[in-house]
């Protein structure tokens, strides 16, 4: 039957859930091997962090959408965690091939990396459902409160850190549909054009460090 916008949005939701049915909300055997290969095994920290972020996410979700929707928030979070572990495994496989290393201790013990990756995974899940709400003509739906950059505030993520995972996320998850890739591109644009320039942004610290380190490359001469 012809794809109406609502049917297309519902199809996106079914596809997202279908893609993740074979993925558990716990690390796979392959991920556990990567964890064990680390100088410092990050397994416990990763599990603990997912649990903590689950509590925070559910509370904020209920505040934004309605207390009776806390269970819905937990379901969204579970989908996000499934995608998080799936993409993490794919990222590590490609890094292993690219760098010819198997010990990712620094990366896998980097809390900002995990929070950003989980944040991006949840953004994909939320955008899929919000897309349905908007196409369903219920722009008043409380779920539209969850539009980007809501997830940055929930996890108190610096926009610049979230920005860093987007491209690798898109490369690592080939099943992402074009409209979702476009959504993540719009998130990037929003970060680069405004959010990254807020007064408390990491960007200013990085720019200061660059200036202190001195320019590695000579500035281009002005065009004549």
């Amino acid at each position: 039957p012809p794809q109406t916008p609502i049917r297309a949005a519902m199809h996106s939701i079914q596809q997202l859930r279908g893609e993740l049915t074979s993925n558990s909300d716990r690390p796979s055997g392959i991920l556990m091997v990567y964890f064990r290969n680390c100088t410092v095994d990050p397994s416990e920290d990763i599990m603990k962090r997912v649990e903590q972020l689950s509590q925070i996410f559910s509370q904020k979700f209920a505040q934004a959408v309605g207390q009776r929707c806390e269970g819905l928030g937990k379901k969204r979070f579970t989908l996000g965690v499934q995608l998080y572990y799936k993409v993490m495994e794919s990222m590590l496989k490609s890094e292993e091939k690219r760098l010819s290393v198997q010990n990712f201790s620094k990366l896998l013990n980097n809390a900002t990396f995990h929070t950003s990756l989980l944040g991006c995974s949840l953004e994909v899940v939320l955008a899929t459902y919000v897309g349905y709400s908007l196409k369903n003509g219920s722009s008043e739906s409380p779920e539209t409160n969850l539009c980007f950059p809501w997830i940055l505030d929930v996890f108190q993520l610096h926009a610049f850190d979230f920005y860093k995972v987007i491209e690798s996320f898109i490369k690592a998850e080939p099943t992402l549909k074009h409209d979702m890739i476009e959504h993540l591109w719009r998130c990037e644009q929003q970060i680069m054009e405004s959010i990254a320039w807020k007064s408390d942004s990491l960007l200013f610290e990085l720019l200061k460090q660059c200036r202190e380190d001195g320019p590695e490359e000579q500035a281009e001469p002005p065009a004549t």
Partner: peptide, 21 residues
């Protein structure tokens, strides 16, 4: 619709972006 423009060089990946190379 907009195509995504990949900007990372071949020698850049998530490890470098989080200073974990």
């Amino acid at each position: 619709t907009q195509d995504y423009h990949f900007g990372l060089e071949d020698h850049e990946g998530i490890s470098e972006l989080f200073d974990c190379d």
